[in-house]
Design a protein around this nucleic acid. Structure first.
Lengths: 161, 161
DNA sequence: TCAAATTAGTTTAGATTCGATACTAATGGG
DNA sequence: CCCATTAGTATCGAATCTAAACTAATTTGA
């Protein structure tokens, strides 16, 4: 992955940021969420975002209702990097199932994230499917598309709790 | 992995260095080898090593025959970090076999490493087993123990080539 | 309702990493 | 012995990173 970052003329952390933004939902595409996801301070992430914006990988878009929040939107260059990265470093959906080592990793990450799981929306206990055809988030009350529930959410909590 | 590094109060690169040193052989535990493995300049690695030495993770040991070379020897603190890391992030030996995605990753890494494979000694074309009981490296002419051939070597070249 | 607490994000300073380059020292080849 | 190569360090400038102080917007709660 370091070599991949080097090919693009960026640091490893930049690749991780872009890769994350390409997979997270609209509640999770902010500086604060990235700070929690990567375990780095907000200030550090803020500067990293500044670099990525200056290099044309993404742009900041102010939230319409909460003016403190800026959503980080990938531009073509950013999506291109993410696509290349995922082509090389992604695994098939069921690749990791039924393995004890992965279990250990996940348990540790869960602890390291202070019990934040940063997992897919569709596996979250707040996600309900009342009408049978559309999803709703129990936290925000918003309706969610099929594409929405396939993304990473910072508010994720496992169903079994 | 970033969270793990944070728990130890170090950067990700330090974890990678210690993890590598815990798995490489005596031809590969040097600043130069690390520079090639991580794809960073020698100067950068030199400073990183300086930090790890000051923090008590490792010590430099001058080579007896080639006085330019300094072997990087993990101390108790370094071995402890490596052990914890491997407990969390290692997979069973056969976990990755027979998968096309991994094939793509390896091919890319091979290219990114300028065709240096940094693989296990026992899978190297220079490794021979003339007596049937002990291994010999065709490059250095040295006898190798069973433990030796299970380590990473910077001079590694695949058997089929 | 309104002051206090919380949250999102930026800025700053100091330590560290990083790349590029120049440098010292040791080795090896002709 | 000269010269090229190799291992490693030193230095500079740019960038990352943490910690802390800061602004601004939102939420809390008495």
């Amino acid at each position: 992955m370091r070599k991949f970052a080097q090919d693009w003329g960026v640091q490893l952390v930049h690749v991780e940021v872009v890769h994350y933004l390409n997979r997270c939902n609209r509640y999770s595409d902010t500086t604060q969420a990235l700070s929690e996801y990567l375990g780095q301070t907000k200030g550090s992430i803020s500067q990293t975002i500044g670099f990525l914006e200056a290099e044309g990988y993404l742009k900041r878009i102010q939230d319409k209702t909460d003016k403190r929040v800026f959503h980080l939107h990938l531009l073509a260059k950013g999506r291109s990097l993410a696509r290349e990265f995922e082509k090389l470093f992604s695994f098939p959906p069921n690749f990791f199932e039924d393995d004890l080592s992965l279990e250990r990793v996940l348990v540790h990450l869960q602890k390291a994230n202070s019990l934040k799981s940063f997992d897919l929306c569709k596996t979250c206990r707040f996600n309900s499917n009342p009408s049978g055809s559309s999803f709703v988030c129990g936290l925000t009350g918003e309706k969610l598309s099929h594409e929405d529930v396939g993304k990473i959410c910072r508010e994720h909590q496992p169903i079994t709790g």
